[in-house]
């Protein structure tokens, strides 16, 4: 072994380090460039009109997006979290569990357009109803379900066995252990799962096209839940921001459709980024409170 041999090793080392560093920073640069472009374009065309909650504005679509994601989070949490708890805590190793897990994995890789058509068939055609937010939320929750199931399962599995033993040792039943020890301890990770699921919901378009509908007609002075123009009525057509962008870029007849689409994208971007930041902060606070620092 001579000096040049070591020099060559060191050179290769620094080349590889640079390569990895480039890979890591590339993602950051890409994100900044992307967000910057969308925000720049969007803000250029953003007018006061667009921010209003009227027929001309994007406020209604903004509200629909939030409301729809909220509903689908509830549906998927009701289905997904118990499923994850079952797989992690109750199920014994066996054929049935293998099938359940395979079903969850397959569900998570379904293309959203296929799920959208399924939602259309089941929630619209079979129920003989019009486009509505409930159908949209249920369809999106099918997409969120596998994510929440596996996040919940993983979160519980990574908890130390000592939590379970100590709880049983104090005379707790299985349900008391799950409810009072395991779920609270897994909460920050389940929360992260909910954020990821929400992110998916905010960005979803294909699954909503045939379910939530491409129009919205809300009157902010109408608070009769059964009325089709009541904002809180989930059984009304409810175009979201993503659907609005799609509609503007494909079939809008207005002259400034592209500008409107750019503004709409910017609003969607602000929504997603601020939601993610708030949720991260909340989960950080909870983590800190439980971690004793």
């Amino acid at each position: 072994m001579n000096d040049s041999h070591f020099a060559a090793k060191k050179r290769l080392d620094s080349i590889m380090t640079a390569l990895f560093r480039f890979g890591a920073y590339f993602a950051v640069v890409l994100l900044i460039a992307f967000v910057g472009y969308v925000m720049g374009e969007g803000c250029r065309y953003l007018t006061g009109d667009m921010l209003s909650f009227s027929e001309k504005g994007l406020g209604n679509q903004f509200f629909n997006t939030l409301y729809l994601v909220f509903l689908s989070l509830i549906f998927s949490a009701i289905g997904g979290i118990p499923a994850g708890v079952y797989l992690a805590e109750y199920a014994h190793k066996g054929h049935l569990v293998k099938w359940v897990r395979m079903a969850v994995e397959t569900l998570s890789s379904l293309p959203s357009i296929v799920v959208g058509l399924f939602g259309y068939l089941v929630f619209i055609v079979m129920t003989h109803s019009e486009w509505n937010m409930l159908a949209g939320a249920l369809t999106v929750s099918i997409l969120m379900l596998p994510l929440l199931t596996s996040v919940t399962e993983d979160a519980l599995r990574t908890l130390p066995e000592s939590y379970r033993l100590s709880s049983y040792g104090l005379g707790a039943s299985k349900w008391q252990t799950v409810l009072h020890v395991l779920l609270p301890a897994a909460f920050p990770r389940i929360m992260t799962g909910l954020i990821m699921a929400a992110g998916r919901g905010f960005g979803e378009a294909a699954a909503l096209m045939f379910t939530a509908g491409m129009s919205t007609d809300i009157h902010w002075d109408d608070w009769d839940l059964s009325s089709p123009s009541c904002p809180l009525n989930p059984l009304r057509p409810s175009e979201t921001l993503t659907l609005h962008i799609w509609a503007l870029r494909t079939e809008a007849l207005e002259a400034n459709a592209n500008e409107q689409a750019a503004a709409c994208s910017a609003i969607l971007m602000i929504l997603v980024v601020s939601f993610s930041l708030i949720a991260r902060y909340m989960s950080y606070r909870i983590d800190k409170k439980m971690g004793g620092n």
Binding site: S162, S166, G169, L170, V181, P184, A185
Partner: peptide
């Protein structure tokens, strides 16, 4: 009641 080898407080 039982006390274990490793201290096992709950994250509470």
């Amino acid at each position: 009641g039982m006390v274990f080898q490793q201290p096992t407080p709950f994250p509470k």
